[in-house]
Simulated assay, not measured.
Amino acid sequence: MTGATPGTFARAIRANLVLYGALAANLGIALAKFAAASVTGSSAMLTEGVHSLVDSGNQLLLLYGQAKAKRPADAAHPFGYGRELYFWAFIVAILIFALGAGVSIYEGWRHVSAPEPLRDPTVNYVVLAVALLLEGMSWGIAVREFNARRGASGWWQSVRRSKDPAGFIILFEDSAALAGLLIAALGVWVSHHLGDARFDGVASIAIGLILATVALLLAREAKGLLIGESADIAIIRTVWDLLDEEACITAVNHVRTIHTAPDAVFVAISADFDDALTMGV
């Protein structure tokens, strides 16, 4: 059997607000970072521009995945299309690794090997300050939404148990973005303080390594959802309790569940019934 938990519609609206907010922030930040990189020649700023552009593309993919996942069940997919969202979440992880981390590490290595001449860093600092403000706002929205869902559970435990990848992907992306901005600012400052532009490239490589780590974590979580994860233990216990209340059931052999969407669960039950129970007509 399948079913949706209460508050599905409200949660969908909140999740989309988080996605739209992150998308708007990242598009504006990406343009500002690319402009700053073209003026100052900073590798870290160019890397951060690519980072924000990749994040924007990721949010568009998640919105696309959410729209596709809402299609009703049909003959070809009798349990619906909910798990399509998990597929696009896995694609997002691949893009973060291939584009975000790959370009960052490549650009960093290129600038370490052949450093750009140092220029006035003022534009970089202004753009980084604005980006920190916008990313911080987006991160705050993502944290508030995630905290509302996780309840008393720990952060990492909530990520592992979450069946909605949109929420924790935005949280991971925004956290990586804030860390990247701080590293970029440090790289620009150290480069000018020591008069060595290679530190700007080192900062770019460090940003790439952070993105690679985030991508691997997201890929692991998305893979589990894509393969199929069971429902939360509390839901399974509720099903067992309901079955135990049925006098016509003498024994329950097993209750097996799998998420077909973030808010939909397929349940398979093996049970023994009272021999005196008559078959329905």
Score class of each variant (00 low, 15 high):
residue 121 P to M: 06
residue 115 P to E: 08
residue 68 K to Y: 10
residue 55 D to W: 01
residue 91 I to Y: 09
residue 56 S to N: 11
residue 72 P to M: 08
residue 97 F to K: 02
residue 68 K to T: 02
residue 68 K to W: 04
residue 100 G to Q: 03
residue 119 R to S: 15
residue 96 I to N: 03
residue 73 A to F: 01
residue 87 F to G: 00
residue 78 P to I: 02
residue 93 A to E: 03
residue 97 F to H: 08
residue 76 A to W: 10
residue 57 G to N: 14
residue 83 R to N: 04
residue 83 R to E: 03
residue 90 F to P: 03
residue 69 A to T: 12
residue 114 A to H: 15
residue 87 F to M: 15
residue 118 L to W: 13
residue 80 G to I: 08
residue 95 L to H: 03
residue 104 S to D: 06
residue 59 Q to E: 12
residue 59 Q to W: 00
residue 119 R to Y: 06
residue 121 P to H: 12
residue 65 G to A: 00
residue 113 S to T: 14
residue 81 Y to L: 03
residue 72 P to L: 06
residue 125 Y to V: 14
residue 85 L to H: 01
residue 78 P to Q: 07
residue 62 L to V: 09
residue 114 A to W: 15
residue 70 K to I: 10
residue 107 E to I: 05
residue 111 H to D: 11
residue 68 K to N: 12
residue 105 I to C: 07
residue 117 P to G: 14
residue 107 E to R: 14
residue 115 P to W: 09
residue 62 L to W: 10
residue 62 L to I: 04
residue 83 R to K: 12
residue 74 D to N: 13
residue 122 T to Y: 01
residue 117 P to C: 13
residue 118 L to Q: 09
residue 117 P to Y: 06
residue 94 I to L: 15
residue 84 E to K: 14
residue 83 R to H: 07
residue 67 A to V: 09
residue 59 Q to K: 05
residue 78 P to N: 06
residue 83 R to G: 07
residue 55 D to C: 11
residue 91 I to Q: 02
residue 117 P to S: 13
residue 87 F to N: 00
residue 125 Y to I: 07
residue 111 H to W: 06
residue 108 G to N: 02
residue 102 G to I: 11
residue 68 K to L: 12
residue 69 A to G: 03
residue 111 H to T: 14
residue 110 R to E: 02
residue 111 H to A: 07
residue 123 V to T: 15
residue 64 Y to R: 09
residue 79 F to G: 14
residue 125 Y to R: 15
residue 112 V to G: 07
residue 117 P to N: 15
residue 107 E to T: 06
residue 85 L to Q: 01
residue 116 E to R: 11
residue 111 H to Y: 05
residue 109 W to F: 15
residue 96 I to K: 02
residue 118 L to T: 14
residue 117 P to R: 14
residue 71 R to I: 15
residue 106 Y to G: 08
residue 115 P to M: 04
residue 89 A to N: 01
residue 67 A to P: 09
residue 60 L to G: 14
residue 96 I to L: 10
residue 93 A to R: 01
residue 91 I to A: 07
residue 125 Y to Q: 07
residue 61 L to E: 01
residue 115 P to T: 03
residue 100 G to N: 01
residue 57 G to A: 12
residue 106 Y to W: 14
residue 85 L to C: 02
residue 75 A to W: 08
residue 104 S to T: 09
residue 76 A to G: 09
residue 82 G to L: 03
residue 87 F to Y: 12
residue 121 P to I: 07
residue 115 P to L: 07
residue 92 V to D: 00
residue 60 L to I: 12
residue 83 R to L: 00
residue 73 A to M: 07
residue 59 Q to I: 03
residue 122 T to H: 12
residue 119 R to Q: 11
residue 110 R to T: 05
